[in-house]
Design a protein around this nucleic acid. Sequence first.
DNA 1: CACGTCACCTGCGTGC
DNA 2: TGCACGCAGGTGACGT
Length: 278
Amino acid sequence: MPELPEVETIARSLRPELVGLTILEADVFWPRTIALPSVRRFKQEIRGQVIREVGRRAKFLRLVLTDYELLIHLRMSGDIVLKPGIVVPAKHDRLILLLRAPRTRPHALPARRDFSLAFNDTRKFGRVWLTANPEEITGRLGPEPLSDDFTPQWLSAALRNRHRQLKPLLLDQTFLAGLGNIYTDESLHRARLHPLALSDSLSARKAARLHAAIRLTLEEGIRRNGASFDWVYRGGDFQNYFRVYDREGKPCPVCGTPIRRLVVGQRSTHICPHCQKE
DNA sequence: CACGTCACCTGCGTGC
DNA sequence: TGCACGCAGGTGACGT
């Protein structure tokens, strides 16, 4: 489910809680969740690692550890839940890391030091990598859309270098990293561009419009702490501000024309037929 | 290289 | 109620 803004929201909320904690043990309940290395080595190598930093690259959550990096991809239904104490696994928990905080002042009141970090993933598509070389996993990703590398000039040139439909190209993580089905539809509507328009047909002016739309859409998503749905509520409320996504038949916020749903590359796609001409 | 199809999984809403 | 079907914020492996 989560796209860039949801993963960014998770990373920001976890960082102050996790940095400095030691991983005592990993419990794996669905072996295929561990993409790398083997489950056996994963459990062995992660023990004793201290969490130094928590961040994000594309849709990957990154935990920088003493000797490794732990990369977590939530795919469609993954979620990260931090709970105090040592807990029994909840339904759909695929991995639980048992964490311990360092002792604070010697005579302080006994604070709770044990935590459980659960990777909960109904559909089992999510994956976790423990590696000393994160570049091997994330190396082929395109630029971060919120970084300085992502400029209107870069986007314009990159679009002209390909001959692709806009929507599948924007979903291609090796082209640009972090957009998913929601934020792509929202960005295209904001840019007034049709999802099937060919990338090399865009003028520099339209490319600049798309660039600005992507930035604004992602920034708004982050500002609203991402989008929440019935089945995974995370506190964000961007779902209340969708312009087109999941709004088939409802009025376009710009012109009032009913939003239409089409299928592009097997993905549900939402457009305003008036604002987004092919 | 671009694009279509299927696979990986579970759960929910809908219609018969 | 039971059941089939379509659908879900992702990605990777195929084939043409």
